[in-house]
């Protein structure tokens, strides 16, 4: 028997007592890392009050922000995608559609309709990034084309708010064709002298940028939005070098002449109203 014995037990790890916070009370800004009271961000139209970072917002929130209260009438909300290629990655596309509809309460990645901005009638299409990354398949292409055709028919300006990773891979060639379809509809709009405003929000890349999103009579971007053709990862892999700071951000596109102006969320409605009144001589 040892003459010396430890009398006390070793130091046991103290049970981690984490402060239980109600979900979503505080939000960490993705840009400045500041912890901010979520309600404060919400009150500020989902823009960080410290650094002016524009958080992604849903299509519904965007519509409430831009269109006059109660003026929005949705159209084509019942259209759904179908899995005509039997596409399967980690999940069948058919199941992915079903699950995403259930999760988001939307039928696809864009909400379209008519409404007014300071009493001026417009046709709008608004992307929702939460639905499969805002990707464009048949449904998105069809709904945007119909929104453009609505503008044509009503002789009302058309505005598209983009937020999309690009064409939807699960619909392969059919997604690609939506780029041609929507752009062809814009050719008709242009010929008829009706304004088309493209608002680019974070992120707008791939086939959406390479079709209607770059074809605005005015291209308007939200601050610091990622906008480009190829995604930054693809470019880095191709050229094997780090991309410069601020590459493919709104400010970079403004400098290179690809967008007409950068407009903060708080000022978007008034700016659109001002622009459209001049374009429509009203």
């Amino acid at each position: 028997m040892a003459w010396f014995r430890k009398k006390k037990a070793g130091i046991a790890p103290v049970e981690q007592k984490q402060v239980q916070m109600p979900e979503g009370v505080w939000t960490k800004c993705k840009n400045c890392d500041e912890i901010i009271y979520a309600k404060e961000i919400e009150r500020n139209l989902n823009v960080c009050p410290k650094c002016d970072y524009h958080f992604r917002i849903s299509a519904r929130e965007r519509i409430a922000l831009i269109l006059d209260e109660g003026s929005f009438v949705e159209m084509d909300s019942g259209i759904q995608s179908i899995d005509f290629l039997d596409f399967k990655d980690s999940k069948k596309y058919k199941e992915r559609i079903k699950a995403t509809i259930k999760k988001t309460g939307m039928n696809d990645a864009v909400v379209c309709g008519e409404g007014t901005i300071n009493e001026l009638p417009v046709a709008v299409a608004v992307f929702d990034f939460s639905f499969m990354g805002g990707s464009m398949g048949s449904v998105v292409g069809e709904k945007i084309t119909r929104a453009i055709e609505k503008g044509l028919e009503a002789r009302a300006p058309v505005i598209v708010f983009s937020s999309s990773g690009g064409a939807r891979m699960q619909e392969s060639i059919m997604s690609l064709m939506q780029m041609a379809k929507t752009s062809a509809a814009l050719a008709k709009l242009k010929k008829n002298g009706i304004p088309f405003i493209s608002v680019l929000t974070d992120p707008t890349t791939g086939g959406v940028t390479a079709s209607f999103a770059m074809l605005g009579d005015l291209n308007i971007a939200e601050p610091r939005a990622l906008i480009g053709f190829a995604g930054p990862r693809v470019i880095e892999q191709t050229i094997r070098q780090k991309l410069p700071e601020g590459f493919q951000r709104s400010e970079y596109l403004l400098e290179h002449g690809m967008v007409d102006m950068i407009v903060r969320r708080q000022e978007m409605k008034e700016r659109l109203s001002q622009v459209l009144r001049i374009f429509t001589k009203s």
């Binding site: 041609a180 940028t209 390479a210 053709f229 190829a230 191709t238 050229i239």
Partner: peptide, 26 residues
């Protein structure tokens, strides 16, 4: 595919493609 490079982005790869789609349609 269209070239994914810094210069291509700088000079508006997406805009060039988009414009062709619209103008070819007409």
């Amino acid at each position: 595919g269209a070239f994914p490079g810094i210069g291509a982005e700088e000079r508006g790869q997406a805009e060039a493609i988009a414009r062709n789609l619209r103008e070819m349609a007409a």
